[in-house]
Amino acid sequence: MNEFDKYYNGMFRQDIQTFFSKIPERSKHTFDDRKIFTVQYQTLTKDFDCLDFLDKEMKAFFGTALFFTVLVDQVCYSHYQDYYNKFQKLTRYPKFVGNSPSTDRTNFPPIDIFSAFNYSRDKEKMFNTENVEFWAVFNKAKPVMKKDTINFFKTHMNEIDGEEFWKKCEQELPYHP
């Protein structure tokens, strides 16, 4: 069990609940369905204090866990629509969306989660505050998420082949050594 495994299967659930307690109510459910949680891009940026409860190291863990959570949700929706309603009821994974009325119901690519953490509209904040570095945590996360994703489908939705599902996820992963 590596550090990411401990975080993802431990503190992440508490951290995401804390995060949702700090974001504006209108940002939590932009699809007009209270069962569908959304994370707007701006709530992850340096311009908002929604992540101030986490230190820089834990932001890397949280952002990486959020990336994989959103990715798995999007892969299921895109490639397994016949099973998506069941998947969504089991997971309640959040959607990652834009800020404006024209994009707050649009799923953004999960890779944009990483840039959001280091973005600010204020140039002073953008360039003079420490950035979150994700890649070390991300590389530790890949084998954990592969195992957890495959096991999820074996245990809860065996109508989907977990290995095949993970291959579709891998096609969306950014390359980093």
Rank of each mutant, 00 (worst) to 15 (best):
L71G: 01
V72T: 06
V72A: 00
D73F: 07
D73A: 10
D73V: 02
Q74Y: 07
C76I: 11
Y77D: 11
H79E: 15
H79G: 10
H79L: 12
H79A: 13
H79K: 11
Q81Y: 14
Q81A: 12
Y83V: 09
N85T: 15
N85S: 15
N85W: 13
K86W: 09
F87T: 04
Q88A: 13
Q88E: 14
K89R: 06
L90K: 02
L90S: 02
L90T: 01
L90P: 08
L90H: 02
T91P: 02
T91H: 01
R92Y: 14
R92W: 12
Y93S: 06
Y93V: 07
P94F: 05
K95Y: 15
K95I: 08
F96I: 12
V97F: 08
G98I: 11
G98N: 05
G98V: 10
N99H: 05
N99Y: 14
N99F: 09
S100T: 15
S100K: 01
S100F: 12
S100C: 03
P101E: 10
P101G: 05
S102N: 12
S102T: 10
T103R: 06
D104E: 14
D104T: 07
R105L: 08
R105S: 12
R105V: 12
T106C: 11
T106K: 07
N107H: 12
N107E: 15
F108W: 08
F108C: 01
F108V: 03
P109M: 09
P109K: 06
D112P: 00
I113Q: 07
I113H: 02
I113M: 10
I113C: 04
A116K: 00
F117A: 06
F117C: 09
N118T: 06
N118K: 01
Y119Q: 03
S120L: 14
S120I: 13
R121N: 10
D122P: 03
D122R: 07
K123I: 15
K123S: 10
E124W: 13
E124V: 14
M126Q: 09
M126R: 10
M126A: 12
F127Y: 14
T129S: 08
E130P: 08
E130L: 13
N131K: 11
N131L: 07
V132P: 05
F134K: 02
F134H: 06
F134A: 03
W135H: 04
A136I: 02
V137L: 04
N139W: 03
N139Y: 02
N139M: 10
K140H: 05
A141L: 01
A141P: 01
K142E: 12
K142L: 12
P143F: 03
M145T: 02
K146E: 14
K146T: 10
K146F: 06
K146R: 12
K147D: 13
K147V: 09
D148A: 13
D148L: 11
T149M: 09
T149P: 04
I150N: 00
I150A: 01
N151G: 05
N151H: 09
N151W: 03
N151L: 14
F152I: 07
F153L: 04
F153P: 04
T155E: 14
T155N: 03
H156E: 10
E159F: 08
E159P: 05
I160S: 00
D161V: 08
D161W: 01
D161Y: 08
G162P: 01
G162R: 03
E163R: 08
F165H: 05
W166L: 07
W166G: 07
W166H: 05
